[in-house]
């Protein structure tokens, strides 16, 4: 009740005004480029080449989308692969990461600095692409294996350490009383750490999900044409573009004039097609980003 009264006070109003203004400007700055992407994806290739990107398509055309949706079942399949990989990878990654973060955040754990170092070290030193690739293909047999889309980005040490810092901000007293009640680590982890760290989990989960969603690099490295059915969305879309352009160039070599591939609009349409579903995930997560909810809830 008290809070409501405060809300109306002068500085609240001022703060809201300034916030709305700043966030509003930033939002517009973020929306305009994306608007350009959408508008460009609906333009003719030639009008982009001649007149650049415009807020309203100069010559409207659905060619880019027509090319991408040419074989709908393949596109759906690629969506399916990406969703599967994202769901499995995010779930598993979040579990593994948060377990480790829980232990490292625990002040009673004597070796937490050493173990943190063990993890952190890998984010500075790496063997480079070639040794990594050799090991993955020769010994782990990642070739044309869906695991190659999951395992390489399953644990991100940066996220692990960020999650650790979130967990450390949970008041220690809450853990202590649970331990005194005789709860084991697993109980404390599931019953206290996870519920209290929802915002942190949502953040890291979102980041992991985005990494999976946007990953085409591992697909490029480990999948070849033989396993088309494993192509994730981003890689699949890319392939359509290069393939269309290659076919076109080839046709021209034969002396057969072919209609131009809408390369530019296709690149933009790819952004639109690949962004769509994942952008819907974020509003869904937003309920975890409301201030002052979590701790009060547990205490109450």
């Amino acid at each position: 009740m008290l809070k409501k009264k405060q809300n109306k006070s002068y500085d609240r109003v001022m703060f809201n005004l300034i916030s709305c203004l700043v966030l509003g400007i930033l939002s517009v700055a973020c929306v305009i480029p994306f608007w350009l992407v959408i508008s460009g994806s609906l333009s003719k290739q030639q009008s982009i080449q001649l007149y650049g990107y415009r807020l309203i398509p100069r010559e409207f055309s659905l060619d880019a989308y027509r090319m991408l949706f040419k074989i709908p079942e393949e596109l759906l399949r690629a969506y399916g692969v990406t969703i599967l990989v994202t769901v499995v990878g995010t779930g598993l990654g979040l579990l593994i990461t948060s377990m480790a973060a829980y232990v490292l955040a625990n002040r009673n754990f004597r070796y937490r600095y050493q173990v943190s170092f063990f993890f952190y070290f890998t984010s500075i030193f790496g063997g480079g692409l070639v040794p990594w690739y050799i090991f993955n293909t020769k010994y782990l047999h990642f070739h044309n294996n869906i695991i190659a889309l999951i395992l390489p980005i399953l644990v991100n040490v940066t996220y692990l350490l960020i999650l650790k810092s979130y967990m450390m901000s949970i008041p220690e007293s809450l853990y202590e009383s649970a331990y005194l009640d005789g709860a084991g680590d697993l109980t404390v982890y599931f019953k206290i750490a996870l519920p209290l760290c929802k915002a942190g989990l949502a953040t890291v989960g979102l980041f992991i999900a985005l990494n999976y969603w946007n990953d085409w690099y591992n697909a490029m490295l480990f999948l070849d044409e033989g396993s088309k059915e494993l192509y994730p969305l981003q890689y699949y879309l890319n392939n359509i573009l290069t393939k269309a352009q290659a076919m076109n160039a080839a046709a021209a070599r034969s002396g057969i004039p072919a209609s131009e591939v809408p390369g530019e609009p296709m690149k933009l349409a790819m952004t639109v097609v690949a962004t769509g579903p994942i952008v819907l995930l974020y509003p869904f997560l937003q309920k975890y980003f409301v201030k002052g909810v979590t701790i009060g809830a547990v205490k109450g």
């Binding site: 490292l104 993890f119 890998t122 790496g126 090991f135 390489p152 399953l154």
Partner: peptide
């Protein structure tokens, strides 16, 4: 609880290192 993360890191980072 540390083992799964450690295994992934060893496989994906330490051995190729």
């Amino acid at each position: 609880m540390l083992v799964p993360a450690a295994v992934v890191v060893i496989l994906m980072c330490y051995i190729p290192m």
